[in-house]
């Protein structure tokens, strides 16, 4: 497998992520149990959505201590591609692979809807994939309200690390932030679910260029036939 999808107890978008990468984009993907090591030869890792460890204590707080996380940390340190979606984003923030934290939506309720997002055009990979200025992606979360202190925020904005912004804002997230990347540009995290917008029965196909942008280094390094 080239793309590993980490399965924690309570992950529930692991199948969806695998399906979108394997059957829609056409890269070999597989699920890896959180107690197992990250397999050799993996070029990208997706930390999928769900309720890892029931979201007990805080979203992502317990998953952060899973055995696989040390492998993931070194994989990211070596420049490996990592994408956290929804609960995966929360786990990456908890583990320090991405800055900031996600707290309860300001409406205090879970929100599941097709969300309009503004694409930040500062991301080269997004530009190569010719992302539209405005996208629609499904969101489904109760704790997607991004928080970071002023210093971190200033850095994020100055380094063009914000990927996507809500328009309008469904959860009170600061600076309307829906997704970010790390400074090195290899670790992505976002609350919206690109894997739920890749097939003709989905509300739209806007997730496809987002996933392809993330997987770009793999798509370039190995000429894979795209089935989409």
């Amino acid at each position: 497998m080239k793309v590993a999808i980490i399965q924690f107890p309570g992950s529930n978008c692991d199948w969806d992520a695998e399906h979108s990468v394997q059957n829609v984009i056409g890269l070999p993907a597989g699920r890896v149990w959180h107690k197992d090591p990250l397999p050799e030869g993996v070029e990208a890792v997706i930390v999928p959505g769900g309720f890892s460890f029931g979201d007990y204590l805080r979203c992502g707080a317990i998953a952060r201590f899973s055995p696989i996380m040390s492998d993931l940390q070194s994989f990211a340190d070596q420049g490996g591609q990592v994408l956290g979606i929804c609960n995966g984003f929360q786990i990456l923030c908890e583990s320090g692979l991405l800055p900031g934290a996600l707290v309860r939506n300001d409406c205090m309720e879970f929100r599941c809807l097709n969300q309009s997002l503004k694409v930040e055009d500062s991301n080269e990979r997004f530009n190569t994939e010719a992302l539209a200025a405005q996208l629609t992606l499904p969101i489904a979360h109760g704790e997607g309200n991004y928080r970071a202190d002023t210093e971190v925020l200033t850095d994020l904005e100055a380094n063009n690390q914000v990927l996507l912004r809500y328009a309008p804002n469904p959860n009170g997230s600061i600076n309307d932030i829906a997704g970010i990347r790390n400074q090195a540009g290899n670790v992505y995290g976002m609350m919206p679910h690109p894997e739920r917008a890749v097939e003709s029965h989905h509300p739209c196909l806007d997730g496809l260029p987002v996933l392809r942008a993330f997987l770009q280094p793999l798509l370039q390094s190995s000429p894979v036939q795209l089935s989409a």
Binding site: V103, M108, R147
Partner: peptide, 14 residues
């Protein structure tokens, strides 16, 4: 407890 500098939606609702 939530840091005083961080918004606390639950506290606000209560």
């Amino acid at each position: 407890s939530p840091k005083t500098t961080v918004l606390d939606p639950q506290g606000a609702a209560v």
